[in-house]
Nucleic acid binder design. Sequence first.
DNA 1: GATGAATGAGTATTCATTCAT
DNA 2: GATGAATGAATACTCATTCAT
Lengths: 197, 197, 197, 197
Amino acid sequence: MRKGERRKQELLQIAYRMFITRGYENTGVEDIIEEAGIAKGTYYYYFESKEQTLEEVIGMMIDEEMEAAKEIAASDISVPQKIVGIISAARPTQEEQPIEGALMRPENVLMHNKIRQKLMSDMVPILAKVVEEGINEKIFDCDNIPERVRMMLVVSGEIFDEGQFTERDVEVFIDMTEKLLGAKSGTMNFINKLIKR
Amino acid sequence: MRKGERRKQELLQIAYRMFITRGYENTGVEDIIEEAGIAKGTYYYYFESKEQTLEEVIGMMIDEEMEAAKEIAASDISVPQKIVGIISAARPTQEEQPIEGALMRPENVLMHNKIRQKLMSDMVPILAKVVEEGINEKIFDCDNIPERVRMMLVVSGEIFDEGQFTERDVEVFIDMTEKLLGAKSGTMNFINKLIKR
Amino acid sequence: MRKGERRKQELLQIAYRMFITRGYENTGVEDIIEEAGIAKGTYYYYFESKEQTLEEVIGMMIDEEMEAAKEIAASDISVPQKIVGIISAARPTQEEQPIEGALMRPENVLMHNKIRQKLMSDMVPILAKVVEEGINEKIFDCDNIPERVRMMLVVSGEIFDEGQFTERDVEVFIDMTEKLLGAKSGTMNFINKLIKR
Amino acid sequence: MRKGERRKQELLQIAYRMFITRGYENTGVEDIIEEAGIAKGTYYYYFESKEQTLEEVIGMMIDEEMEAAKEIAASDISVPQKIVGIISAARPTQEEQPIEGALMRPENVLMHNKIRQKLMSDMVPILAKVVEEGINEKIFDCDNIPERVRMMLVVSGEIFDEGQFTERDVEVFIDMTEKLLGAKSGTMNFINKLIKR
DNA sequence: GATGAATGAGTATTCATTCAT
DNA sequence: GATGAATGAATACTCATTCAT
């Protein structure tokens, strides 16, 4: 059982890497088992189906990001810094995105979408809480918090995932975020230093 | 010549409808020709490939929406009204979206993406011009216009395409739009009456 | 493993027979699997492609003929008899050529060519050795052995494969062979009795 | 009619060039009409079928070579020179073989075969006559002339068409030819100077 | 836990040929 | 003489999944 679990984790890692590198649709079960050095039957011993594998891969991915997000939310850095940190955590890290813009490639559109949807719904409550914290601290001033948070995430995903954004994009994003949350101008300005590529 | 052109339009319409209804990937060339009552050879007489067909279908779709957008931009309604009108034009109309949320279904994710990308790049310049008009009229006040416009489109696409949005979403969207463009609060308030479902 | 190997041999035999009987181009994968009573997937489990199958079929065929040729070369019959025997071995046997002149039919031209080329290059060295043996025994007297051997094979292939040759053809072939190798007239005369149809 | 004839010749030339350059099987009717700038219907107005076109193309080709062969046979150079000249005429000239070894490529195997067969049967009688002339002049001494001539042609075709032959091949070919025809050693030696590449 | 032989539904594309105008 | 829209038979290959051992 222990052993089996470890094996499964291994397979998940491999599938994960391959899905991101070559795209879900372009990765055959054959490819995965070859890379893993196991037989076909073994693969189906661990996974119900290829789609199920994708689901688990995404779950694994998001879990990690959620973990990070929660840690940030619980830490004692300033509220604006928490927000930026969490949003950054929601972006596929370099390790996860071995090829620049991989998630944007048409063959990855399906996976990207699933990730986005799950990320979106999981992230909103955490961020909302932080925003509320900010309101209590009089740093922010707004209503309809979950809706506002969602929009922030939508924009950040669309703009930053692509990997093709300019300094102006960041500038506008900062401005938008501040206004969306009812913060004083300049509150989030430090993002500039973080997100810059 | 005439005849051929008309035939092609017909086929395009059929393909269009089927792609949206059942999804691009789920629609076989077989299905299309059966619906159209033509032979396989005829299909390939008009289209290079299935993918090429998709490209043309999307082109057709966007062209219509661009047409509408340009008309609105040129009309003499108020600037805020133009903006709302154009953004609305960019959303698939009911006729185009026979099944609620069709574009959101996983099998349509590819098509949806292509549409979005093309729409995004085509729409930004038109909207940007209208915003400039608004700035000249002192209704708006902002810089980095294309970036701002793009963010508006991103949000509107993500929120409204889904078909699953609340009154609060609209409210926040209005607020965001006004602030993004540097308009006085209430300027865009009339959206409420338009977009409501 | 055993099982798989045997199955593959079986399939190879079937493909072989069909390619020769109906021609490579006229034999569909469909035909083969129907005859073999297997599913399409099974076919592609064993073979990379139809072309690859042809390659293996030819390999198999040649291997058998090479085997025979080597045995003949190693036996202790006279050198001229060895030469005739090897050349005969290089001709598709009756079992291999179920329909008279099948290899000559236009639909078989591709296969025939591949066979010829491989046969040619594999056979030359063996025959050359035998000729050298003959030279040592003072039965033959010539230089440029590989070139001479090749010409013999070319002629024998072209003339005899067709299945349409006369006694005169054989006569001239004998004469040519003797002179090509620098043998005394009459040395190879016994061919007459062997090759006659 | 005149005009039609000329048009057909034009088409034949084009088809000819394309068949040789790209292979018969790789040349679509589409390709031919595009190159010729005519409509599909027009093509089928002039040719019964694609295969018929090939037949005519080959006929045209051979006719030219036969013409040359006959001229050589009727000229008053020496008999050995006639033989060499005719054999050379039977080889596709440079103009006809724009790409080295084109006829040897697998996609040309069909055409190559048809050419060979027709050439073979048409060439034998002419060459046979010249050999008889040589016998009368006591230069040659042999029987079974057509069979011997055929073998010469077979070898020359196989060896020289390929374009990959060595000096030794030529040497052996000369030797073989002389012996096959019962000529004195050295009679055909001048070939060396002609065929050399 | 692990294997690997066997499956079979699913699919886009090619191309020579015809015929009404 | 010439057109070009329409045909439709023909075909190789993929790949996730199963199951007896």
